[in-house]
């Protein structure tokens, strides 16, 4: 199991991920799963800027990730999967049986979303999608940084 964390975070690669989780878990590869970033070289360069040189960053569309996730998990490189959209995580989980745990790290306020935790805002549809994953046996919990308490889905959605 070399996918050591699958994280839902709309800021994608940022301080909590690079300074917090990458160091805490000894991550050596970050895979950013996002259709838009995958097709935008400029965005990719931007997301790579803040990552230490010994960490590899790869970019995948959701479809590419579904195809590759078994290989990433079998590879000894400690890997963090990162997506910014609930629907991307749902497609990833439902397209493969490899992902059994989701860390919700930050979904900020936006159109139609209501606050669930200090760092989690969801629309009704997004909450329903996460509950569906839970019902399929995927453990969904919220935790922004490694030192924080983990809040199970039932407490906030």
């Amino acid at each position: 199991m070399s996918i050591v964390l699958t994280r839902l975070d709309d800021r994608l690669i940022h301080g909590q991920v690079v300074v917090g989780w990458v160091q805490h878990l000894g991550v050596k590869r970050i895979v950013l799963v996002d259709d838009e970033v995958r097709s935008n070289a400029w965005e990719q360069e931007l997301y790579t800027l803040g990552v230490p040189g010994d960490i590899t960053v790869e970019f995948a569309s959701v479809d590419e990730a579904v195809q590759a996730v078994r290989d990433w998990n079998a590879d000894p490189t400690r890997t963090l999967l990162l997506a910014g959209r609930v629907d991307a995580i749902v497609r990833l989980c439902e397209g493969t049986d490899v992902i059994r745990k989701i860390n919700v790290g930050g979904l900020h306020e936006g159109s139609g979303r209501t606050q669930r935790l200090a760092f989690v805002y969801l629309t009704g549809e997004e909450a329903e999608q996460l509950r569906r994953l839970h019902d399929q046996g995927v453990e969904v919990s919220a935790q922004d940084v490694p030192t924080a308490n983990r809040a199970p889905l039932k407490d906030w959605a």
Partner: peptide
């Protein structure tokens, strides 16, 4: 504040 992360990303995306 940092060479990477959400603040730099937002600044460059907005002001490119």
């Amino acid at each position: 504040d940092m060479p990477g992360g959400s603040c730099l990303h937002a600044a460059l995306a907005e002001l490119r």
